[in-house]
């Protein structure tokens, strides 16, 4: 699913990476615990999280996550934005809650990480 479509579904604001909305993500992961993200996420995912500190961008970087969407109306601090620009990670933000955001995307056909096949 294209990030552009995800942005529309979640009525999200683009914080970093406005030129990268044509990128495709294969699946999504909704989680606030970064170690759980590292344990379960597969490359080519979008991460939905309420965590806005720079470590979510680090987590995205090491596990090949393409984009992060912050939920519950949270906005990342400058150091998170700066790191995301540097590491080429797209940042979105929505007012929807985590559960609702996941539900909307799942409903639109974006699978979860455990449903997606082999990790590349």
């Amino acid at each position: 699913m294209k990030l552009e479509k995800i942005k529309d579904i979640l009525q999200a604001e683009v914080i970093v990476g406005a030129d990268d909305l044509q990128k495709e993500v294969k699946m999504a992961c909704g989680c606030d615990l970064m170690s759980d993200v590292l344990a379960f996420v597969k490359s080519g995912s979008i991460l939905l999280t309420g965590l806005v500190n720079p470590q979510c961008v680090r987590t995205a970087e090491v596990s090949d996550i393409i984009a992060i969407c912050f939920v519950r109306g949270k906005k990342p601090p400058n150091e998170t934005k700066k790191l995301a620009e540097e590491k080429n990670i797209v940042l979105l933000a929505t007012d929807l809650l985590l559960y609702e955001s996941c539900g909307e995307l799942y409903n639109a056909g974006l699978p979860g990480c455990s449903e997606y096949g082999e990790d590349f």
């Binding site: 170690s35 500190n53 987590t59």
Partner: peptide, 15 residues
């Protein structure tokens, strides 16, 4: 609160 300390670190490493 920073998203760490969930007790998954060493288990993740092992994996």
């Amino acid at each position: 609160e920073m998203g760490f300390g969930a007790g998954m670190g060493l288990a993740n490493i092992k994996k």
